[in-house]
Computed example of a mutant assay.
Amino acid sequence: MSRIVHLAVKVDDLEEATRFYTEVFGFTEVKTGRNRQHISRHMTDGHIDFTLMKYDSEDAHEAQLAGAGPRLHHWGVTVDDQDAAAERIKQYGGEILSAEGEGALKFRAPDGTIAEVVKPGRYNEK
């Protein structure tokens, strides 16, 4: 069964955003690392992977996928079969944005929303 396991938010100030979500909501930092043209700080509420993303530049291609400035960048759903999901995405009017073989297969839904499909366990969901 598919379920939402990940939310990614693009931020201007990684430390300020981290402080906000840890102090206001009690989210816990899990890991921080560089991924292509941004730093990702993975946090959790105990159930979902909540990631803060700070891009090196607003000019980075992936930074512009959801639009300029701070905002919800994408959400992720776990699926048993990424290839089958990719075919269904295309069949129903979605556009695949990631290169084949990437762990997180990003797509644009017909309504313009950016999301990704991942295999179970990518975000260590419970």
Results as ranks from 00 to 15, higher is better:
45 D>T: 08
61 H>N: 09
95 E>S: 08
39 I>C: 04
87 E>N: 11
76 G>D: 00
87 E>Y: 09
91 Q>C: 12
117 V>I: 14
91 Q>P: 06
39 I>D: 03
6 H>N: 06
20 F>R: 03
19 R>Y: 09
33 G>S: 08
38 H>P: 00
51 T>G: 06
20 F>T: 06
48 I>G: 03
118 V>S: 00
94 G>L: 07
16 E>H: 11
97 L>K: 02
56 D>V: 05
28 T>A: 13
35 N>M: 10
93 G>H: 08
121 G>L: 05
52 L>V: 06
102 E>L: 13
18 T>W: 07
87 E>D: 15
118 V>L: 09
34 R>M: 09
112 G>S: 05
109 A>P: 04
56 D>M: 05
122 R>I: 06
48 I>P: 01
4 I>M: 14
115 A>Q: 01
108 R>E: 01
119 K>P: 02
12 D>H: 11
10 K>M: 11
113 T>V: 14
73 H>S: 02
15 E>H: 08
46 G>W: 11
18 T>I: 02
32 T>F: 11
115 A>S: 07
123 Y>D: 03
15 E>T: 06
53 M>S: 02
86 A>Q: 08
87 E>F: 10
5 V>K: 02
87 E>W: 10
115 A>Y: 01
77 V>Q: 05
23 E>C: 10
1 M>T: 12
77 V>N: 01
45 D>M: 10
24 V>G: 06
51 T>N: 10
46 G>Q: 12
108 R>I: 03
16 E>R: 13
63 A>S: 10
24 V>S: 13
73 H>G: 00
18 T>P: 03
113 T>H: 13
102 E>F: 12
105 L>V: 05
66 A>R: 02
69 G>D: 07
43 M>P: 01
86 A>G: 11
125 E>S: 03
123 Y>K: 00
27 F>G: 02
124 N>K: 10
43 M>K: 02
71 R>L: 10
50 F>L: 13
23 E>Q: 14
54 K>A: 12
69 G>L: 08
60 A>T: 01
119 K>Y: 13
23 E>A: 14
6 H>I: 05
55 Y>E: 00
6 H>R: 05
43 M>V: 05
118 V>Y: 00
106 K>N: 07
1 M>F: 14
99 A>C: 08
126 K>Y: 12
61 H>W: 15
55 Y>D: 02
15 E>S: 07
68 A>Y: 09
